[in-house]
Design a protein around this nucleic acid. Structure first.
Lengths: 130, 130
DNA sequence: CCGTATCCAGCTCGATACTG
DNA sequence: CAGTATCGAGCTGGATACGG
C-alpha cells in the first residue's frame, strides 16, 4: 500500500521533499544522462556540461541517498565509478519526461512573456521616475 | 511550431529555466491552490500554510512574469486581488500532477532509503573515528 | 580517474514591522 | 486586504587546488 499516504499541501509533507529533489538544478540533467544505462563519473560530467566536480558529486550523492541512483566502484587502476538509475529512478523517468517535454515545448513562449513583462515594468519605472 | 526547439542538455538551455520554476519551493503548492479556479491572495496564503507574504508575492510575481498566472486587482474597499492560472498554466497542470502523484506515492520509500543511508554512513564514520 | 578541501559570492527564504 | 521595507541567517552553487 504505497499510494497517496501524503498530500503536498501539508505543512511538512514528505512529498514536498521529493518534489524539491526533482526541481534541483542538476537532477533532470543527470537523469537524462543516465537514461540510456550506467555511466561513469567523467561521462556524466561531460554530458551535463559545465557542472563542477564538487557539485556533481553532491547531486549524485543526494540521488543515491534517496535510492534513485546506484554508485558502483570498480577496484581498477585507474579507478572506475559507474552510476545508474535504480528501478525507482527508472519509474520517475516517465513523469519527469512529461514535465521536460512540456518545458521544451513552451520555453520559447515563457521567455517571450518574461521579456514582455520586464519591458513593461521598465516603462512603468521610467514614468514614476520622470 | 512550438515543439522541441530546445534541449535540456544544452548549456544555457531555456527549458532548464522552466524546469527550475517548476522545481521552485512554492510553485507546486500554488498550482494546487489555483487548481480549482481564481483565488485571493489571502486564500492562497492560508492554503499554502506557512509562507510569508513577501515570499508568496515573489513566487506569484515570478509565475505572472512567465505567463502562467494572471493577477487581477479589483478597485474595492478593501482591495481584492485575485490570482488565476492562464491557459498555459492550466496546460502545465497535467505533467505537474504526474510528478506530484509519483512523489506522493513514493515519498515514504524515499524517506526510508534516506534514513538507511544516513544510518550506515554514520556507522562508517564511527569506525574511522575509532 | 574520481573525487575531496577550502573558501567565497550570491541568492533564497524568512521574521517582523509598516503602508496604500 | 494586500502587499512592501528592511535586515539577516543559511544554504546552494562554484572556482580552484589538492589527495587516494
Amino acid at each position: 500500500m504505497e499510494s497517496m499516504p501524503f498530500n503536498v499541501m501539508d505543512h511538512n509533507c514528505p512529498s514536498r521533499v521529493v518534489l524539491q529533489r526533482i526541481g534541483d538544478k542538476w537532477t533532470p540533467l543527470i537523469f537524462q544522462a543516465l537514461k540510456g544505462g550506467a555511466r561513469r563519473f567523467g561521462e556524466i560530467r561531460q554530458t551535463v556540461d559545465g557542472v563542477s566536480p564538487k557539485v556533481l558529486t553532491q547531486s549524485l550523492r543526494a540521488l543515491e541517498r534517496d535510492g534513485l541512483v546506484t554508485r558502483e566502484v570498480f577496484a581498477e587502476v585507474p579507478v572506475r565509478v559507474e552510476y545508474a538509475l535504480t528501478a525507482l529512478g527508472e519509474s520517475l523517468l516517465e513523469p519527469l519526461d512529461a514535465v521536460r517535454i512540456w518545458a521544451e515545448a513552451h520555453a520559447a513562449r515563457i521567455l517571450a512573456a518574461r521579456d514582455a513583462y520586464d519591458e513593461s515594468s521598465l516603462r512603468a519605472e521610467e514614468l514614476t521616475t520622470a
